[in-house]
Nucleic acid binder design. Structure first.
Lengths: 160, 160
DNA sequence: CGGATGTCAGGCTCACTGAAATTC
DNA sequence: CGAATTTCAGTGAGCCTGACATCC
């Protein structure tokens, strides 16, 4: 019904001066563009960003339940199901019932999954560089630090 | 089918270390939170962010066609229709056929619309402060500058 | 019992596309 | 004719909720 911030529509003309430097607006537009770049890049490896998130988390924590993986990645429990399905189809993870607690599934990265993660990692790093292309190295770190602090603040205030 | 970055799911546990500082991911999460704050704030004034964008652009440029307004705000031509409908219903703008080019409509801000914009402007400024709450004044400017440069880079490369 | 877990079904918003009607 | 403008209808992805069966 309603909606529609566009990139195409803004190619020609300058947007309003006051609008152009609104933080919330810039964040939305940059996030959209970053998402586009990441999705397009990962699509060429038949992957999605949640594949990457799940594999990274699994690789760091070792085998965990889906609920635990959900907490670590930020992917909803309900949506995690199909993410794990896709990763299992491709042979990157294995889903097995937990003998100690039969409500749970234990998700384990396979050797193939680890190899895939390594390649994804390189690609993701390149894509981050594309996103931050106009900034120098120290500026990128500055931006990353500032974003991390903003993010942590909002995470905390939400965890009440 | 697929999807689901959540806030609620991450309240308890720490997300993965490598994931936590990924720029594209932080941008997505902060943009989501900023959008939430802005939408909730504007909702209390029976407004949406595109109302604000359209009013700001109209106030700066004077009466323009919908196509021109689309270019200045970044709102899709097709979605701009309902935005103008809502603003016209509330008496903030007027839509009249352009006598010089009968394909176009000329959109004009009313006196009431200008008053509304003033109040929105104050609210939006407060909301930006909420978004950037953990940062000092100079840090906010630093972040704004960095974001502006990143954004401009991607706008340019898309305008090819 | 209360609470956690995995799963499925759906809702709602939003960026985006396509096409039709009108006018230049 | 081709191109621009307004409008409407619809798609697909992402975030999120609710409910159910199972098990602690």
């Amino acid at each position: 019904m309603i909606g529609g911030m566009t990139w195409d529509a803004m190619d020609d003309h300058q947007p309003s001066a006051r609008l152009r430097r609104l933080p919330s607006r810039m964040l939305a537009m940059i996030a959209m563009q970053a998402d586009r770049l990441v999705n397009e890049g990962l699509a060429q490896m038949d992957a999605r960003k949640w594949h990457y998130a799940a594999l990274v988390a699994l690789n760091e924590s070792g085998p965990v339940s889906q609920a635990e993986l959900s907490k670590r990645t930020g992917i909803y429990r309900s949506d995690l199901v199909s993410v794990i399905n896709e990763l299992a189809e491709r042979g990157f993870v294995e889903r097995a019932p937990d003998p100690a607690d039969r409500r749970r599934n234990v998700i384990t990265v396979t050797e193939r999954g680890r190899g895939h993660l390594e390649r994804l990692d390189k690609l993701i790093t390149e894509l981050q560089d594309d996103v931050l292309a106009p900034l120098t190295r120290p500026e990128r770190e500055q931006l990353t630090d500032l974003l991390a602090r903003v993010l942590e603040h909002h995470s905390r205030s939400r965890a009440s």
